[in-house]
Design a protein around this nucleic acid. Structure first.
Lengths: 293, 293
DNA sequence: CCCAGGTTATGAATTTTAATCATCAATACA
DNA sequence: TGTATTGATGATTAAAATTCATAACCTGGG
Protein backbone atom coordinates (compact mmCIF):
# COMPACT_ATOMS: atom_id res chain seq x y z
CA UNK A 1 0.00 0.00 0.00
CA UNK A 2 1.42 3.35 -1.01
CA UNK A 3 0.41 6.97 -0.66
CA UNK A 4 -0.71 7.05 -4.30
CA UNK A 5 -3.52 4.64 -3.45
CA UNK A 6 -4.72 6.88 -0.68
CA UNK A 7 -4.49 9.87 -2.97
CA UNK A 8 -6.51 8.11 -5.64
CA UNK A 9 -9.24 7.18 -3.17
CA UNK A 10 -9.42 10.76 -1.94
CA UNK A 11 -9.47 12.23 -5.42
CA UNK A 12 -12.23 9.84 -6.36
CA UNK A 13 -14.17 10.83 -3.26
CA UNK A 14 -13.77 14.51 -4.12
CA UNK A 15 -14.50 14.32 -7.83
CA UNK A 16 -16.86 11.39 -8.15
CA UNK A 17 -15.37 9.87 -11.29
CA UNK A 18 -12.00 8.38 -11.98
CA UNK A 19 -11.63 10.50 -15.06
CA UNK A 20 -12.03 13.67 -13.10
CA UNK A 21 -9.90 12.35 -10.27
CA UNK A 22 -7.09 11.73 -12.72
CA UNK A 23 -6.94 15.45 -13.56
CA UNK A 24 -6.61 16.26 -9.90
CA UNK A 25 -3.59 14.00 -9.67
CA UNK A 26 -2.14 15.01 -13.05
CA UNK A 27 -2.30 11.43 -14.23
CA UNK A 28 -4.41 9.53 -16.72
CA UNK A 29 -7.52 7.61 -15.80
CA UNK A 30 -5.71 4.52 -16.91
CA UNK A 31 -2.95 5.04 -14.38
CA UNK A 32 -5.41 5.26 -11.50
CA UNK A 33 -7.29 2.21 -12.65
CA UNK A 34 -4.10 0.18 -12.99
CA UNK A 35 -2.81 1.24 -9.61
CA UNK A 36 -5.96 0.36 -7.78
CA UNK A 37 -6.39 -2.91 -9.60
CA UNK A 38 -2.88 -3.77 -8.56
CA UNK A 39 -3.56 -2.90 -4.94
CA UNK A 40 -6.76 -4.91 -4.92
CA UNK A 41 -4.89 -7.95 -6.18
CA UNK A 42 -2.23 -7.62 -3.54
CA UNK A 43 -4.75 -7.11 -0.76
CA UNK A 44 -7.06 -9.77 -2.11
CA UNK A 45 -10.04 -7.54 -1.59
CA UNK A 46 -12.24 -5.46 -3.85
CA UNK A 47 -12.24 -1.76 -3.09
CA UNK A 48 -14.79 -0.51 -5.55
CA UNK A 49 -17.15 -1.77 -8.17
CA UNK A 50 -18.35 -0.23 -11.37
CA UNK A 51 -22.04 0.37 -11.08
CA UNK A 52 -23.58 1.76 -14.21
CA UNK A 53 -20.89 4.18 -15.20
CA UNK A 54 -19.89 5.35 -11.78
CA UNK A 55 -17.76 3.68 -9.16
CA UNK A 56 -19.15 2.63 -5.81
CA UNK A 57 -16.79 1.96 -2.93
CA UNK A 58 -17.17 -1.37 -1.19
CA UNK A 59 -17.06 -1.50 2.58
CA UNK A 60 -13.33 -2.13 2.41
CA UNK A 61 -12.98 0.78 0.04
CA UNK A 62 -14.96 3.04 2.34
CA UNK A 63 -12.76 2.02 5.21
CA UNK A 64 -9.59 2.60 3.26
CA UNK A 65 -10.73 6.00 2.07
CA UNK A 66 -11.38 6.98 5.67
CA UNK A 67 -7.86 5.92 6.54
CA UNK A 68 -6.69 7.87 3.51
CA UNK A 69 -8.22 11.08 4.84
CA UNK A 70 -6.23 10.81 7.99
CA UNK A 71 -2.96 9.63 6.46
CA UNK A 72 -2.89 12.15 3.65
CA UNK A 73 -3.78 14.97 6.03
CA UNK A 74 -0.86 14.00 8.26
CA UNK A 75 1.58 13.66 5.39
CA UNK A 76 0.54 16.90 3.73
CA UNK A 77 0.80 18.86 6.94
CA UNK A 78 4.23 17.37 7.57
CA UNK A 79 5.29 18.38 4.08
CA UNK A 80 4.11 21.92 4.68
CA UNK A 81 5.86 22.09 7.99
CA UNK A 82 9.08 20.90 6.42
CA UNK A 83 8.72 23.53 3.71
CA UNK A 84 8.53 26.19 6.41
CA UNK A 85 11.48 24.65 8.20
CA UNK A 86 13.44 24.63 4.96
CA UNK A 87 12.63 28.31 4.40
CA UNK A 88 13.71 29.12 7.94
CA UNK A 89 10.26 30.53 8.61
CA UNK A 90 9.64 28.34 11.60
CA UNK A 91 11.49 26.00 13.85
CA UNK A 92 12.13 25.01 17.35
CA UNK A 93 15.08 26.43 19.16
CA UNK A 94 16.21 24.26 22.00
CA UNK A 95 18.60 26.15 24.20
CA UNK A 96 20.72 24.27 26.64
CA UNK A 97 21.77 25.85 29.90
CA UNK A 98 25.07 24.77 31.21
CA UNK A 99 25.21 26.53 34.56
CA UNK A 100 22.58 27.85 36.89
CA UNK A 101 23.89 31.37 36.66
CA UNK A 102 23.52 31.26 32.86
CA UNK A 103 19.87 30.60 33.31
CA UNK A 104 19.52 33.59 35.59
CA UNK A 105 20.99 35.74 32.88
CA UNK A 106 18.95 34.16 30.11
CA UNK A 107 15.73 34.99 31.91
CA UNK A 108 16.45 38.68 31.35
CA UNK A 109 16.54 38.19 27.58
CA UNK A 110 13.83 35.59 27.20
CA UNK A 111 10.83 37.91 27.24
CA UNK A 112 11.91 40.21 24.38
CA UNK A 113 13.08 37.15 22.47
CA UNK A 114 9.68 35.49 22.70
CA UNK A 115 8.04 38.70 21.54
CA UNK A 116 10.34 39.13 18.57
CA UNK A 117 9.92 35.53 17.40
CA UNK A 118 6.36 34.61 18.18
CA UNK A 119 6.38 31.77 15.62
CA UNK A 120 9.47 30.20 17.05
CA UNK A 121 8.98 27.49 19.62
CA UNK A 122 11.59 27.90 22.29
CA UNK A 123 12.61 25.34 24.81
CA UNK A 124 15.12 25.98 27.52
CA UNK A 125 16.54 22.97 29.22
CA UNK A 126 19.33 22.09 31.56
CA UNK A 127 18.84 18.41 30.86
CA UNK A 128 22.11 18.20 28.95
CA UNK A 129 24.00 20.29 31.45
CA UNK A 130 26.79 17.76 31.75
CA UNK A 131 27.07 16.80 28.11
CA UNK A 132 25.78 19.75 26.18
CA UNK A 133 28.71 19.40 23.85
CA UNK A 134 27.46 16.04 22.57
CA UNK A 135 23.82 17.10 22.72
CA UNK A 136 24.30 19.99 20.35
CA UNK A 137 26.12 17.80 17.87
CA UNK A 138 23.30 15.28 17.97
CA UNK A 139 20.73 17.99 17.30
CA UNK A 140 19.20 17.55 20.72
CA UNK A 141 20.15 21.12 21.42
CA UNK A 142 20.50 24.01 19.00
CA UNK A 143 22.34 26.42 21.21
CA UNK A 144 24.10 26.27 24.53
CA UNK A 145 24.77 29.12 26.89
CA UNK A 146 28.03 28.41 28.56
CA UNK A 147 30.95 30.11 30.16
CA UNK A 148 33.17 27.06 29.80
CA UNK A 149 33.87 26.75 26.09
CA UNK A 150 35.76 23.93 24.42
CA UNK A 151 37.51 25.52 21.45
CA UNK A 152 38.21 22.67 19.09
CA UNK A 153 36.48 23.86 15.96
CA UNK A 154 33.54 21.52 16.23
CA UNK A 155 31.18 24.18 17.52
CA UNK A 156 30.85 27.85 16.92
CA UNK A 157 31.34 29.87 20.09
CA UNK A 158 29.99 33.37 19.99
CA UNK A 159 31.24 35.54 22.87
CA UNK A 160 28.30 37.36 24.39
CA UNK A 161 29.72 39.35 27.25
CA UNK A 162 32.48 39.32 29.83
CA UNK A 163 31.83 39.16 33.48
CA UNK A 164 33.60 38.63 36.71
CA UNK A 165 32.98 36.13 39.43
CA UNK A 166 32.77 37.71 42.84
CA UNK A 167 32.50 36.36 46.33
CA UNK A 168 29.15 37.05 47.89
CA UNK A 169 29.04 37.57 51.64
CA UNK A 170 26.59 39.03 54.11
CA UNK A 171 26.98 42.70 54.95
CA UNK A 172 27.66 41.78 58.55
CA UNK A 173 30.28 39.22 57.53
CA UNK A 174 33.71 39.46 59.15
CA UNK A 175 35.30 39.98 55.71
CA UNK A 176 32.68 42.42 54.44
CA UNK A 177 34.78 45.51 55.06
CA UNK A 178 37.84 44.21 53.24
CA UNK A 179 38.81 45.47 49.81
CA UNK A 180 40.52 42.24 48.74
CA UNK A 181 40.63 38.85 50.30
CA UNK A 182 42.82 35.74 50.02
CA UNK A 183 41.56 32.21 49.21
CA UNK A 184 43.06 30.99 52.44
CA UNK A 185 40.65 33.15 54.35
CA UNK A 186 37.83 30.84 53.25
CA UNK A 187 39.18 27.99 55.34
CA UNK A 188 36.71 28.64 58.12
CA UNK A 189 33.81 29.34 55.79
CA UNK A 190 30.86 27.30 54.62
CA UNK A 191 30.80 27.30 50.83
CA UNK A 192 27.51 27.50 48.97
CA UNK A 193 27.42 26.13 45.42
CA UNK A 194 25.06 24.65 42.87
CA UNK A 195 24.80 20.88 43.08
CA UNK A 196 27.40 19.80 40.53
CA UNK A 197 30.80 18.11 40.82
CA UNK A 198 33.62 20.13 42.33
CA UNK A 199 35.61 19.88 39.10
CA UNK A 200 33.00 21.99 37.40
CA UNK A 201 32.82 24.63 40.12
CA UNK A 202 35.03 27.67 39.70
CA UNK A 203 35.03 28.12 43.45
CA UNK A 204 36.94 24.89 43.84
CA UNK A 205 38.73 24.75 40.51
CA UNK A 206 40.04 28.28 40.46
CA UNK A 207 40.02 29.47 44.03
CA UNK A 208 40.27 26.81 46.72
CA UNK A 209 42.12 23.95 45.05
CA UNK A 210 44.96 26.13 43.62
CA UNK A 211 45.48 27.50 47.12
CA UNK A 212 45.22 24.08 48.71
CA UNK A 213 42.36 25.18 50.91
CA UNK A 214 39.63 22.85 52.19
CA UNK A 215 36.73 24.88 53.52
CA UNK A 216 34.82 24.23 56.72
CA UNK A 217 31.76 22.91 54.89
CA UNK A 218 30.19 22.68 51.45
CA UNK A 219 26.48 23.06 50.99
CA UNK A 220 24.76 22.71 47.64
CA UNK A 221 21.74 24.78 46.72
CA UNK A 222 19.55 24.50 43.63
CA UNK A 223 18.14 28.00 43.54
CA UNK A 224 20.11 31.17 43.21
CA UNK A 225 17.62 33.17 45.27
CA UNK A 226 17.94 30.74 48.13
CA UNK A 227 21.69 30.78 47.85
CA UNK A 228 21.68 34.55 48.22
CA UNK A 229 19.33 34.37 51.16
CA UNK A 230 21.59 31.87 52.87
CA UNK A 231 24.56 34.11 52.27
CA UNK A 232 22.67 37.13 53.59
CA UNK A 233 21.89 35.26 56.80
CA UNK A 234 25.56 34.30 57.22
CA UNK A 235 25.07 30.60 56.51
CA UNK A 236 27.87 30.64 53.99
CA UNK A 237 29.59 32.43 51.12
CA UNK A 238 29.35 31.83 47.39
CA UNK A 239 30.96 32.71 44.08
CA UNK A 240 28.59 34.21 41.56
CA UNK A 241 28.71 36.47 38.49
CA UNK A 242 28.78 40.07 39.52
CA UNK A 243 25.89 41.03 37.21
CA UNK A 244 23.73 38.60 39.09
CA UNK A 245 24.03 40.70 42.18
CA UNK A 246 23.41 43.90 40.24
CA UNK A 247 20.10 42.54 39.06
CA UNK A 248 19.16 41.42 42.51
CA UNK A 249 18.36 44.77 44.06
CA UNK A 250 15.98 42.81 46.17
CA UNK A 251 18.99 41.42 47.98
CA UNK A 252 20.53 44.42 49.73
CA UNK A 253 21.95 42.36 52.56
CA UNK A 254 24.93 40.97 50.69
CA UNK A 255 27.98 42.55 49.14
CA UNK A 256 30.59 41.31 46.71
CA UNK A 257 34.31 40.88 47.29
CA UNK A 258 37.23 40.23 44.98
CA UNK A 259 40.29 38.08 45.51
CA UNK A 260 43.66 39.74 45.57
CA UNK A 261 45.72 39.03 42.41
CA UNK A 262 43.14 36.46 41.30
CA UNK A 263 40.99 37.88 38.56
CA UNK A 264 38.01 35.60 38.01
CA UNK A 265 37.14 36.97 34.60
CA UNK A 266 34.89 34.83 32.46
CA UNK A 267 33.13 35.13 29.15
CA UNK A 268 29.65 33.95 28.40
CA UNK A 269 29.38 32.20 25.03
CA UNK A 270 26.57 31.02 22.89
CA UNK A 271 27.60 27.75 21.32
CA UNK A 272 25.92 26.66 18.09
CA UNK A 273 26.63 24.35 15.21
CA UNK A 274 28.52 26.16 12.47
CA UNK A 275 25.68 25.54 10.02
CA UNK A 276 23.20 27.39 12.22
CA UNK A 277 25.15 30.58 12.86
CA UNK A 278 23.42 32.38 10.02
CA UNK A 279 19.88 31.63 11.19
CA UNK A 280 18.04 34.87 11.82
CA UNK A 281 16.84 33.97 15.25
CA UNK A 282 20.32 32.91 16.29
CA UNK A 283 21.77 36.18 15.01
CA UNK A 284 19.17 38.15 16.92
CA UNK A 285 20.08 36.29 20.08
CA UNK A 286 23.75 37.10 19.63
CA UNK A 287 23.19 40.77 18.94
CA UNK A 288 20.80 41.35 21.79
CA UNK A 289 22.93 39.36 24.16
CA UNK A 290 25.83 41.65 23.41
CA UNK A 291 23.87 44.87 23.72
CA UNK A 292 22.48 43.61 26.99
CA UNK A 293 25.98 43.23 28.43
CA UNK B 1 7.33 12.09 0.18
CA UNK B 2 6.45 8.41 0.11
CA UNK B 3 5.92 5.69 2.66
CA UNK B 4 9.34 4.25 1.91
CA UNK B 5 10.93 7.37 3.38
CA UNK B 6 8.97 6.96 6.57
CA UNK B 7 9.88 3.30 6.69
CA UNK B 8 13.56 4.10 6.24
CA UNK B 9 13.50 6.65 9.05
CA UNK B 10 11.81 4.18 11.36
CA UNK B 11 14.16 1.34 10.47
CA UNK B 12 17.10 3.64 11.09
CA UNK B 13 15.64 4.62 14.45
CA UNK B 14 15.19 0.98 15.40
CA UNK B 15 18.52 -0.38 14.19
CA UNK B 16 20.86 2.56 14.53
CA UNK B 17 22.75 2.12 11.28
CA UNK B 18 21.61 2.30 7.69
CA UNK B 19 23.25 -1.02 6.97
CA UNK B 20 21.23 -2.76 9.61
CA UNK B 21 18.10 -0.86 8.64
CA UNK B 22 18.46 -2.08 5.08
CA UNK B 23 18.15 -5.70 6.26
CA UNK B 24 14.94 -4.82 8.05
CA UNK B 25 13.50 -3.48 4.81
CA UNK B 26 15.01 -6.20 2.62
CA UNK B 27 16.85 -3.63 0.57
CA UNK B 28 20.47 -2.62 0.20
CA UNK B 29 22.06 0.18 2.15
CA UNK B 30 22.57 1.92 -1.15
CA UNK B 31 18.86 1.99 -1.87
CA UNK B 32 18.08 3.66 1.45
CA UNK B 33 20.81 6.20 0.98
CA UNK B 34 19.66 7.07 -2.54
CA UNK B 35 16.04 7.38 -1.49
CA UNK B 36 16.72 9.68 1.37
CA UNK B 37 19.15 11.79 -0.58
CA UNK B 38 16.48 12.20 -3.22
CA UNK B 39 13.91 13.22 -0.63
CA UNK B 40 16.28 15.70 0.94
CA UNK B 41 16.86 17.33 -2.41
CA UNK B 42 13.17 17.64 -3.11
CA UNK B 43 12.43 19.01 0.34
CA UNK B 44 15.46 21.24 0.33
CA UNK B 45 16.32 20.24 3.85
CA UNK B 46 18.85 17.94 5.43
CA UNK B 47 17.38 15.08 7.42
CA UNK B 48 20.49 13.52 8.82
CA UNK B 49 24.18 13.98 8.91
CA UNK B 50 26.99 11.49 9.05
CA UNK B 51 28.82 11.93 12.29
CA UNK B 52 31.81 9.73 12.68
CA UNK B 53 30.42 6.51 11.33
CA UNK B 54 26.89 6.81 12.54
CA UNK B 55 24.01 8.93 11.30
CA UNK B 56 22.51 11.66 13.43
CA UNK B 57 19.06 12.99 12.66
CA UNK B 58 18.74 16.75 12.28
CA UNK B 59 15.80 18.50 13.86
CA UNK B 60 13.86 18.12 10.61
CA UNK B 61 14.79 14.45 10.56
CA UNK B 62 13.64 14.01 14.14
CA UNK B 63 10.39 15.67 13.28
CA UNK B 64 9.86 13.55 10.22
CA UNK B 65 10.64 10.37 12.07
CA UNK B 66 8.01 11.28 14.64
CA UNK B 67 5.51 11.77 11.83
CA UNK B 68 6.69 8.46 10.44
CA UNK B 69 5.82 6.64 13.66
CA UNK B 70 2.27 7.82 13.42
CA UNK B 71 1.80 7.37 9.68
CA UNK B 72 3.31 3.92 9.48
CA UNK B 73 1.34 2.78 12.51
CA UNK B 74 -1.86 3.90 10.83
CA UNK B 75 -1.02 2.33 7.50
CA UNK B 76 0.14 -0.95 9.01
CA UNK B 77 -2.94 -1.27 11.12
CA UNK B 78 -5.12 -0.52 8.11
CA UNK B 79 -3.28 -3.19 6.16
CA UNK B 80 -3.86 -5.70 8.94
CA UNK B 81 -7.49 -4.81 9.15
CA UNK B 82 -7.89 -5.26 5.41
CA UNK B 83 -6.17 -8.62 5.62
CA UNK B 84 -8.73 -9.70 8.19
CA UNK B 85 -11.51 -8.32 6.05
CA UNK B 86 -10.15 -10.19 3.05
CA UNK B 87 -10.02 -13.41 5.04
CA UNK B 88 -13.59 -12.85 6.19
CA UNK B 89 -12.36 -12.96 9.80
CA UNK B 90 -13.77 -9.60 10.65
CA UNK B 91 -15.97 -7.00 9.18
CA UNK B 92 -18.94 -4.91 9.86
CA UNK B 93 -22.28 -6.27 8.99
CA UNK B 94 -24.83 -3.56 8.54
CA UNK B 95 -28.27 -5.03 8.55
CA UNK B 96 -31.15 -3.03 7.29
CA UNK B 97 -34.58 -3.50 8.75
CA UNK B 98 -37.40 -2.91 6.44
CA UNK B 99 -40.39 -3.30 8.73
CA UNK B 100 -40.90 -2.98 12.44
CA UNK B 101 -42.01 -6.55 12.78
CA UNK B 102 -38.78 -7.72 11.15
CA UNK B 103 -36.90 -6.02 13.91
CA UNK B 104 -38.96 -7.77 16.54
CA UNK B 105 -38.01 -11.07 15.00
CA UNK B 106 -34.37 -10.15 14.55
CA UNK B 107 -34.06 -9.41 18.24
CA UNK B 108 -34.62 -13.08 18.96
CA UNK B 109 -31.62 -14.06 16.88
CA UNK B 110 -29.32 -11.17 17.69
CA UNK B 111 -27.97 -12.45 20.98
CA UNK B 112 -26.70 -15.83 19.74
CA UNK B 113 -25.39 -14.09 16.63
CA UNK B 114 -23.33 -11.67 18.65
CA UNK B 115 -21.96 -14.54 20.70
CA UNK B 116 -21.04 -16.61 17.67
CA UNK B 117 -19.30 -13.70 15.92
CA UNK B 118 -17.69 -11.68 18.67
CA UNK B 119 -15.23 -10.09 16.24
CA UNK B 120 -17.93 -8.97 13.89
CA UNK B 121 -19.26 -5.49 14.36
CA UNK B 122 -22.96 -5.51 13.79
CA UNK B 123 -25.11 -2.56 13.14
CA UNK B 124 -28.84 -2.76 12.76
CA UNK B 125 -30.51 0.19 11.21
CA UNK B 126 -33.86 1.14 9.79
CA UNK B 127 -32.38 4.27 8.27
CA UNK B 128 -32.75 2.90 4.76
CA UNK B 129 -36.20 1.48 5.40
CA UNK B 130 -37.63 3.13 2.35
CA UNK B 131 -34.76 2.57 -0.03
CA UNK B 132 -32.94 -0.44 1.28
CA UNK B 133 -32.76 -1.73 -2.26
CA UNK B 134 -30.46 1.08 -3.34
CA UNK B 135 -28.62 1.13 -0.03
CA UNK B 136 -27.50 -2.45 -0.30
CA UNK B 137 -26.22 -1.92 -3.82
CA UNK B 138 -24.19 1.05 -2.66
CA UNK B 139 -22.65 -0.94 0.15
CA UNK B 140 -24.38 1.14 2.75
CA UNK B 141 -26.12 -2.01 3.88
CA UNK B 142 -24.88 -5.57 3.70
CA UNK B 143 -28.13 -7.37 4.35
CA UNK B 144 -31.76 -6.46 4.54
CA UNK B 145 -34.45 -8.29 6.39
CA UNK B 146 -37.60 -7.89 4.41
CA UNK B 147 -40.87 -9.57 3.69
CA UNK B 148 -41.43 -7.55 0.53
CA UNK B 149 -38.85 -8.80 -1.95
CA UNK B 150 -38.17 -7.39 -5.39
CA UNK B 151 -37.12 -10.35 -7.51
CA UNK B 152 -35.21 -8.87 -10.40
CA UNK B 153 -31.91 -10.68 -10.10
CA UNK B 154 -29.97 -7.74 -8.72
CA UNK B 155 -30.03 -9.00 -5.16
CA UNK B 156 -29.95 -12.40 -3.65
CA UNK B 157 -33.06 -13.17 -1.63
CA UNK B 158 -32.75 -15.97 0.82
CA UNK B 159 -36.10 -17.18 2.18
CA UNK B 160 -35.85 -17.50 5.92
CA UNK B 161 -39.24 -18.61 7.09
CA UNK B 162 -42.93 -18.36 6.22
CA UNK B 163 -45.39 -16.72 8.45
CA UNK B 164 -48.92 -15.54 8.47
CA UNK B 165 -50.32 -12.16 9.28
CA UNK B 166 -53.12 -12.32 11.80
CA UNK B 167 -55.49 -9.79 13.19
CA UNK B 168 -54.82 -9.01 16.82
CA UNK B 169 -57.82 -8.12 18.97
CA UNK B 170 -58.52 -7.96 22.68
CA UNK B 171 -59.96 -11.07 24.33
CA UNK B 172 -63.07 -9.11 25.20
CA UNK B 173 -63.43 -7.83 21.66
CA UNK B 174 -66.76 -8.30 19.93
CA UNK B 175 -65.07 -10.41 17.23
CA UNK B 176 -62.92 -12.42 19.59
CA UNK B 177 -65.10 -15.49 19.56
CA UNK B 178 -65.28 -15.72 15.77
CA UNK B 179 -63.36 -18.33 13.85
CA UNK B 180 -63.03 -16.24 10.70
CA UNK B 181 -63.82 -12.63 9.98
CA UNK B 182 -64.42 -10.50 6.90
CA UNK B 183 -62.52 -7.32 6.01
CA UNK B 184 -65.77 -5.42 5.96
CA UNK B 185 -66.15 -6.09 9.66
CA UNK B 186 -63.28 -3.71 10.30
CA UNK B 187 -65.30 -0.73 9.14
CA UNK B 188 -66.11 0.29 12.69
CA UNK B 189 -62.66 -0.45 14.04
CA UNK B 190 -59.71 1.71 14.86
CA UNK B 191 -56.69 0.38 13.01
CA UNK B 192 -53.28 0.36 14.69
CA UNK B 193 -50.22 0.34 12.42
CA UNK B 194 -46.59 1.34 12.34
CA UNK B 195 -46.04 4.87 11.07
CA UNK B 196 -45.38 4.28 7.37
CA UNK B 197 -47.39 5.04 4.24
CA UNK B 198 -50.54 3.07 3.66
CA UNK B 199 -49.16 1.64 0.44
CA UNK B 200 -46.57 -0.21 2.47
CA UNK B 201 -48.99 -1.55 5.05
CA UNK B 202 -50.43 -4.99 4.38
CA UNK B 203 -53.47 -4.06 6.44
CA UNK B 204 -54.45 -1.50 3.84
CA UNK B 205 -52.86 -3.00 0.76
CA UNK B 206 -54.13 -6.53 1.19
CA UNK B 207 -57.11 -6.32 3.47
CA UNK B 208 -58.97 -3.02 3.54
CA UNK B 209 -58.33 -1.52 0.11
CA UNK B 210 -59.23 -4.69 -1.88
CA UNK B 211 -62.50 -4.81 0.03
CA UNK B 212 -63.05 -1.09 -0.38
CA UNK B 213 -63.26 -0.58 3.36
CA UNK B 214 -62.30 2.64 5.12
CA UNK B 215 -61.95 2.05 8.83
CA UNK B 216 -63.25 4.24 11.62
CA UNK B 217 -59.80 5.54 12.52
CA UNK B 218 -56.12 4.91 11.90
CA UNK B 219 -53.60 5.33 14.67
CA UNK B 220 -49.90 4.88 14.16
CA UNK B 221 -47.67 3.43 16.85
CA UNK B 222 -43.90 3.15 16.85
CA UNK B 223 -43.50 0.33 19.32
CA UNK B 224 -44.90 -3.14 18.97
CA UNK B 225 -45.34 -3.59 22.70
CA UNK B 226 -47.42 -0.47 22.90
CA UNK B 227 -49.45 -1.53 19.90
CA UNK B 228 -50.29 -4.79 21.66
CA UNK B 229 -51.20 -2.98 24.85
CA UNK B 230 -53.50 -0.69 22.95
CA UNK B 231 -55.13 -3.67 21.29
CA UNK B 232 -55.50 -5.43 24.64
CA UNK B 233 -57.30 -2.41 26.07
CA UNK B 234 -59.64 -2.32 23.10
CA UNK B 235 -58.25 0.86 21.59
CA UNK B 236 -57.93 -0.77 18.20
CA UNK B 237 -56.95 -3.82 16.20
CA UNK B 238 -53.81 -4.55 14.25
CA UNK B 239 -52.28 -6.92 11.74
CA UNK B 240 -49.09 -8.60 12.92
CA UNK B 241 -47.07 -11.74 12.23
CA UNK B 242 -48.47 -14.64 14.18
CA UNK B 243 -45.08 -15.59 15.63
CA UNK B 244 -44.90 -12.21 17.21
CA UNK B 245 -47.85 -13.09 19.39
CA UNK B 246 -46.44 -16.52 20.21
CA UNK B 247 -43.32 -14.89 21.64
CA UNK B 248 -45.36 -12.43 23.58
CA UNK B 249 -46.61 -14.67 26.35
CA UNK B 250 -46.55 -11.58 28.44
CA UNK B 251 -49.55 -10.41 26.39
CA UNK B 252 -52.29 -12.87 27.35
CA UNK B 253 -55.05 -10.34 26.84
CA UNK B 254 -55.12 -10.49 23.06
CA UNK B 255 -55.94 -13.22 20.58
CA UNK B 256 -55.41 -13.66 16.87
CA UNK B 257 -58.02 -13.98 14.13
CA UNK B 258 -57.82 -14.95 10.48
CA UNK B 259 -59.74 -13.61 7.53
CA UNK B 260 -62.04 -15.91 5.64
CA UNK B 261 -60.66 -16.90 2.23
CA UNK B 262 -57.89 -14.35 2.58
CA UNK B 263 -54.63 -16.07 3.43
CA UNK B 264 -52.09 -13.47 4.50
CA UNK B 265 -49.09 -15.71 4.04
CA UNK B 266 -45.76 -13.98 3.80
CA UNK B 267 -42.14 -15.00 3.63
CA UNK B 268 -39.30 -13.31 5.42
CA UNK B 269 -36.22 -12.91 3.26
CA UNK B 270 -32.67 -11.94 3.86
CA UNK B 271 -31.52 -9.85 0.94
CA UNK B 272 -27.79 -9.66 0.20
CA UNK B 273 -25.55 -8.87 -2.71
CA UNK B 274 -24.81 -12.02 -4.70
CA UNK B 275 -21.11 -11.67 -3.96
CA UNK B 276 -21.69 -11.86 -0.20
CA UNK B 277 -23.86 -14.94 -0.05
CA UNK B 278 -20.89 -17.19 0.68
CA UNK B 279 -19.61 -15.16 3.63
CA UNK B 280 -19.54 -17.33 6.73
CA UNK B 281 -21.42 -14.91 8.89
CA UNK B 282 -24.11 -14.48 6.27
CA UNK B 283 -24.47 -18.25 5.94
CA UNK B 284 -24.76 -18.61 9.68
CA UNK B 285 -27.48 -16.03 9.72
CA UNK B 286 -29.42 -17.86 7.02
CA UNK B 287 -29.12 -21.26 8.67
CA UNK B 288 -30.08 -20.08 12.11
CA UNK B 289 -32.87 -17.98 10.78
CA UNK B 290 -34.33 -21.04 9.15
CA UNK B 291 -33.97 -23.33 12.16
CA UNK B 292 -35.53 -20.66 14.28
CA UNK B 293 -38.63 -20.68 12.15
C1' DC C 1 50.62 4.37 13.75
C1' DC C 2 48.54 2.09 10.56
C1' DC C 3 45.41 -1.34 9.18
C1' DA C 4 41.16 -4.17 9.38
C1' DG C 5 36.58 -3.79 9.58
C1' DG C 6 33.01 -1.01 9.93
C1' DT C 7 30.21 3.05 8.38
C1' DT C 8 27.60 6.05 4.54
C1' DA C 9 27.79 8.23 -0.17
C1' DT C 10 27.72 7.99 -5.05
C1' DG C 11 27.88 7.01 -10.25
C1' DA C 12 26.56 3.71 -13.70
C1' DA C 13 24.07 -0.26 -15.06
C1' DT C 14 20.17 -2.94 -14.45
C1' DT C 15 15.79 -4.17 -13.04
C1' DT C 16 11.40 -3.07 -11.64
C1' DT C 17 7.55 -0.26 -11.58
C1' DA C 18 4.40 3.09 -13.16
C1' DA C 19 2.24 5.79 -16.80
C1' DT C 20 0.56 6.23 -21.24
C1' DC C 21 -1.68 5.09 -25.51
C1' DA C 22 -5.05 2.81 -27.88
C1' DT C 23 -8.61 0.23 -27.35
C1' DC C 24 -12.91 -2.26 -25.54
C1' DA C 25 -17.20 -2.82 -23.06
C1' DA C 26 -20.86 -0.98 -20.62
C1' DT C 27 -24.00 2.65 -19.74
C1' DA C 28 -26.80 6.78 -19.88
C1' DC C 29 -28.97 10.21 -22.37
C1' DA C 30 -30.74 12.81 -26.14
C1' DT D 1 -30.57 4.11 -31.77
C1' DG D 2 -26.61 6.52 -32.05
C1' DT D 3 -23.28 9.26 -29.34
C1' DA D 4 -20.71 10.58 -25.65
C1' DT D 5 -18.87 9.25 -21.34
C1' DT D 6 -17.70 6.06 -18.04
C1' DG D 7 -13.98 2.54 -16.22
C1' DA D 8 -11.07 -1.68 -17.57
C1' DT D 9 -7.30 -3.72 -19.93
C1' DG D 10 -3.13 -5.18 -22.82
C1' DA D 11 0.96 -3.59 -25.00
C1' DT D 12 4.34 -0.12 -25.16
C1' DT D 13 7.03 3.45 -23.41
C1' DA D 14 8.92 6.17 -19.80
C1' DA D 15 10.45 6.70 -15.25
C1' DA D 16 11.98 5.33 -11.01
C1' DA D 17 14.08 2.39 -7.74
C1' DT D 18 17.50 -1.01 -6.80
C1' DT D 19 21.77 -3.00 -7.11
C1' DC D 20 26.65 -3.31 -7.88
C1' DA D 21 31.04 -1.66 -7.36
C1' DT D 22 33.62 1.44 -5.16
C1' DA D 23 35.03 5.73 -2.88
C1' DA D 24 35.58 8.21 1.30
C1' DC D 25 35.51 8.19 5.92
C1' DC D 26 35.82 6.82 10.95
C1' DT D 27 37.07 3.77 14.97
C1' DG D 28 39.39 0.64 17.68
C1' DG D 29 43.03 -2.66 18.28
C1' DG D 30 47.42 -4.74 17.59
Amino acid sequence: MELIHFRILLALKRRGTLNSASELLHLTQSALSHQMKNLEQRLGIILWRKQGRTLVLTQAGQYLSDVAESVIATVDSAEQHLALLAAGKTGKLIIGIDCHACYEWFRTILQPYLQTWPELAIEVTSRYRFNSFEAIQQYKLDAVLTSDPVFNGVLHYQPLFDFELVLIVAKQHRLAERQFIEPSELQEETILTYPVERERLDMFRKVLQPAGVEPLAHITVEETDIMLQLAASQRGVCLLPEWLLADKVKNPDVISLRFKDLPLAKTMYLATRHEDVQLEYIQWLIEHAQSKA
